[in-house]
Design a binder for these strands. Structure first.
Lengths: 214, 214
DNA sequence: TATATTAATATTGTATACAATATACAGTAT
DNA sequence: ATACTGTATATTGTATACAATATTAATATA
């Protein structure tokens, strides 16, 4: 079956790329006409796309003033990550122990992370790893929220990708989670998973502070 | 004609009223032209409103087929309420002990619930009570998600308002939460708050099953 | 020069127009 | 009668047009 992707969702992805590539800076206004011309679409689907990104917390808007890219702040970071930790950890509990094939895949991705030193690739692999770990979760509302939080946290990750040696530690935590899962210790795995998210946050806070002090 | 303000948000509220008043039935298509004419607005802001409701999980859409009101299901109910329980309980922990004035207000609302026997009013009061309890929470992302879940759960509450004697029990739980808060036992209060949400779910499941069996 | 005021321009919010697709229906063949 | 095919109608998706507001530039004035 041929499925036509809606213009709106395509626009969202393109704008999202502009954002994580730093082509649009935090707090920068997103002028509709300019963007629409740039993407060769009309304002109508563009506005719909931006409104969705606003619901997802990426973009903000004031009446009659239009959209602008949201700021990045330590405060928001400290809101998002603990929430993400709680929700992902809950999602893992609901997912149950992954299948052997999934565990193999988790190991494989984690290995790739260990050998990679491209920060952007690391962000992507970590995202995939987290997604796979909870992919059996059937709670759609929960998954939707996690997806929203992923977008938000990825902005920080792409902006402050200088993780330093936290990566190694995070990878070891992944390994630890996998070990628990192999032994069927779901609860322990989910607790460690939450910690893993918090470690990611700490790394980002460090990078953020470093960058800010320059 | 709707008065001049923020048209989109006004449309959302009007459509929302149509939904909770049962003027639109679950799974019923929402034809844009028809609705737009009815509200004396154009399709553009109406579509934007419907898209927001879709993001909030109230409405769904398929490409080229338009919007329809989401179904109500026991399955979804069992997704939403535990999530709501987790998030509200977390929000209470972050809120800290309410001020004496807030506690007085919580007592007062709970008392009103005790004397009311209008189901619709009960739903509204319970909503207000929950909102007030966590109103000190500063985590905007968390509050946004809770707001989304409130909309979703309210659909169930308005549709199956025949709570029976669960109301009395819920009110007693509220009283219990207040007692904990007065004693500064935040953690205990938040645990009971989660239970309170789950009791609400159980009541709804009962009503849902009863209605379904007729 | 700096500030206030007003005109010009740009931008958003909403309505309408047009194009693409889906749905409903009539007519025909089996 | 039923299933099928083509056509008419309705509906959505996208683009454009217009009106209301915000922003910028220009001018006048102290």
């Amino acid at each position: 079956m041929i499925t036509q992707k809606s213009l709106r969702s395509q626009i969202i992805e393109v704008v999202w790329q502009l954002i994580i590539d730093g082509k649009i800076k935090p707090n920068e206004p997103l002028r509709e006409i300019h963007l629409a011309d740039m993407l060769n679409v009309s304002r109508t689907p563009l506005r719909e796309a931006l409104q969705q990104l606003e619901l997802e917390g990426i973009v903000k808007s004031e009446p009659r003033k239009g959209f602008r890219l949201s700021d990045l702040s330590e405060e928001e970071l400290k809101e998002i990550y603990p929430l993400r930790a709680k929700l992902e950890s809950y999602a893992l509990e609901l997912s149950g122990i992954p299948s052997p094939e999934q565990i193999d895949e988790l190991i494989s991705i984690n290995h790739k992370m260990d050998t990679s030193n491209d920060p952007k690739e690391l962000v992507e692999l970590d995202e995939i790893w987290h997604g796979l770990l909870i992919s059996n979760c059937k709670n759609k509302s929960l998954m939707k929220m996690i997806k929203m939080l992923h977008r938000q946290s990825q902005r920080y990750e792409y902006a402050y990708m200088d993780f330093g040696n936290m990566v190694k530690f995070s990878i070891s935590q992944h390994a630890g989670i996998i070990e628990y899962l192999k032994k069927g210790q779901l609860k322990e795995a989910s607790i460690l998973f939450a910690e893993n998210n918090m470690v990611g946050m700490d790394a980002l806070i460090n990078s953020l502070k470093l960058k800010h002090n320059n």
